[in-house]
Design a protein around this nucleic acid. Structure first.
Length: 599
RNA sequence: GCCCCCGUAGCUCAAUGGAUAGAGCACCGGACUUCUAAUCCGACGGUUGCAGGUUCGAGUCCUGCCGGGGGCGCCA
């Protein structure tokens, strides 16, 4: 928040060092003071001292760093807005004047409101692709991690200043889809249940049942084997008819697909996710085939048909000795497309039709080789944007009893968890806040329940696997979403009781360490937005939100606001509470978590 | 065989190469006539898997090893 002042100070330091022949590095590194109860910034002079040592002077680096820090501190003298300057152990510490800093921070937040923390426009278009569940299945907790991670990332990148497009890419075709279609047509036509979620989940049941019918068993009798093979032939025939554009199959496919998409849209709506562009695998099927022809014609791909598939020998094309990208199959020997075929076609659309500069794929880490191959082929194909394609891999979600498996029926559906979350929060409200009007409870329960779930997913770094545990994910105590939401509620409660918010206030009194800490954290919000966006890590924002909530809870407990000793303190603290509430709300919003007024 | 990820407190996880490695949970002890206790305060808890190396400084970077997970020509 002090960039212009820091530049001035840095210029003074450079002038001093130039005069005294101290070799400063190109970039000076300023960071927040690591001491709690103080706000300010520091830098160090170890690099300068080490540089002198490298130039041949015989010196002790830490000792020399301290000498430089001390000389710089002396040369700086007194500075505007800086309360104290000290040199210790090679570090130069600048302490902000707490009152002036508090006023400045609070005024900025209240003036900017929900835009507080928004980065300057970066003039770069980013597409975030996430929410790619298969249709004809149901949305499970693994899909949820993907969706919440992608949405939080999109919000962060957008707020940081990038022109952002949210893309969803449902897998609406493939053998799995056809399997459900076959099952439905043969055994269950017209028997689908009412209700968007019920019908979506019902399709999953068909898939499981069909898989059982179609999977070879060791102890099967000849009759069973014959039956299974007959079923499989029917299924493959159906795929062929789909591929040929058969009217009946296509109509059946569109109808059942819509059931899945309705459920998906309902869930995304619950999560407050609004997709800008919907891509479907089926839509890039044909374009993918054309691309394969082009790659063959240009000598990038090799056609081994009819005895083999169409492949790209990536390592060989790149002249690599060791196997790294290996050989990718881009078209089946029967001429049908693969995942990779479609991703190539989709990338082309993203670049050419949507003008995407940077393309982020939020897909679990098991597919990292697939994306490395896809990006390399795009590069060989001649797309410079390939360099700015980024696979954001994340650890997959499993259950305590092992990996989720739809065919074994071992899945935890998002809707089940969401319903359970609401039930638990309703119980909590009944216990903790019995005066809340009944008609308000359901909405709050959804906000808080989903907040707990979202935070459980986002407070773990991308590359870590998650073993989904219902009790842990829906916990309301400690390092959780509701803890942060509760800080927001408490702030709101004070402000409601206070009535009008003073239009300005002066912090010219002895601030408590709790107030200093709170102001300090609020001030760090904008840089946290940038860091989280640049690193593609919602975790950074999740950790920040928790730290801010902790600072607020402590402040709330230790510092009287409505009962403050003086009118000046009361006004100042009210504005501080309002600033904290705003910042909490902004941080939660970036995590796609609601900030309730009461809970 | 090759590639990727992980290993930090009993458990789940943090920590842009910087000052004393931090939280939550669990366990133990405190704080509600108060701005709502979904909170706060305290105590307990560490050879950062092992061994070298780079650096003024390594949980973080490099090499090797051990342990766990994932991936590797027609699934997505």
């Amino acid at each position: 928040m002090f960039t212009s002042e820091i530049q001035t100070i840095e210029a003074q330091i450079r002038a001093h060092c130039a005069k005294t022949n101290i070799p400063l590095p190109e970039k000076m590194d300023w960071r927040p003071l690591p001491f709690s109860g103080e706000s300010g910034i520091f830098t160090s002079f170890f690099q300068a001292a080490a540089q002198e040592a490298r130039q041949g002077q015989k010196i002790n680096v830490p000792q020399r760093a301290q000498e430089i820090a001390a000389s710089v501190a002396k040369a700086l003298g007194t500075l505007e807005g800086i309360h104290r300057v000290e040199a210790v152990k090679g570090y130069l510490n600048l302490y902000f004047d707490p009152s002036a800093f508090a006023r400045r921070v609070v005024d900025t937040v209240l003036q900017q409101g929900e835009d507080f923390g928004r980065g300057k426009p970066k003039n770069e278009r980013v597409m975030v692709e996430y929410a790619q569940p298969n249709t004809h299945h149901s949305f499970h907790i693994g899909h949820y991690r993907n969706a919440i991670l992608g949405e939080a990332l999109a919000r962060l990148v957008e707020f940081a200043g990038y022109d952002t497009i949210r893309a969803s890419y449902p897998g609406d075709i493939g053998l799995g889809v056809i399997t459900v279609l076959w099952m439905y047509d043969k055994f269950y036509k017209g028997q689908e249940p009412e209700g968007v979620h019920e019908r979506g989940q019902w399709l999953l049941k068909l898939y499981v049942e069909a898989t059982n019918l179609l999977t070879p068993r060791e102890d099967e009798t000849p009759e069973e084997k014959a039956q299974r093979e007959a079923y499989d032939a029917e299924r493959r025939e159906m795929y062929r008819r789909w591929d040929a554009g058969d009217e009946y199959v296509r109509a059946l496919w569109l109808e059942t697909r819509e059931w899945s998409l309705q459920e998906l849209r309902a869930i995304l709506e619950m999560m407050d996710i609004h997709i800008d562009v919907w891509f479907y695998e089926s839509q890039v099927d044909e374009p993918g085939k054309q691309i394969v022809e082009e790659l063959i014609a240009r000598g990038i791909a090799e056609d081994e048909r009819p005895d083999g598939p169409v492949i790209v020998r990536i390592d060989e094309k790149l002249g690599l000795k060791k196997e790294k990208y290996r050989t990718a199959v881009i078209l089946r020997s029967d001429g049908t497309t693969l995942y990779l075929t479609k991703d190539l076609a989709l990338a082309k659309i993203k670049f050419e039709q949507y003008g995407v500069d940077r393309s982020i794929y939020v897909v679990d880490t098991r597919q990292s080789l697939h994306f490395q191959q896809a990006f390399k082929i795009l590069e060989l194909w001649g797309f410079p944007q390939a360099e700015k394609c980024f696979h954001l891999g994340y650890g997959f979600v499993s259950l305590p009893e092992g990996a989720m498996s739809a065919r074994r029926g071992r899945v935890v559906l998002f809707k089940e968890v969401a319903d359970e979350a609401v039930r638990r929060v309703l119980n909590e409200i009944a216990e903790k806040n019995p005066s809340m009007p009944t008609e308000q409870r359901e909405a709050v329960a959804l906000q808080v329940g989903l907040g707990a779930l979202a935070y459980a997913m986002l407070s773990v770094d991308n590359n870590k696997d998650i073993v989904f545990d219902m009790d842990a994910a829906l916990s309301f105590d400690g390092h959780t979403g509701p803890y942060i939401q509760n800080a927001h509620v408490r702030a709101g409660s004070i402000l409601r009781k206070a009535g009008d918010l003073p239009s300005q206030a002066d912090f010219s009194y002895q601030l408590s360490p709790y107030e200093v800490e709170l102001v300090d954290l609020i001030a760090r919000f904008p840089e946290t937005v940038q860091q989280a966006a640049e690193e593609y890590r919602p975790l950074v924002m999740a950790t920040y939100a928790f730290d801010l909530a902790t600072a607020f809870h402590r402040f709330y407990h230790e510092v009287p606001v409505l009962q403050a000793d003086t009118g000046t303190q009361r006004s100042a603290r009210l504005r501080l509470v309002a600033a904290a509430k705003q910042t909490l709300a902004n941080a939660l919003r970036l995590l796609a978590i609601q900030a309730p007024e009461q809970m």
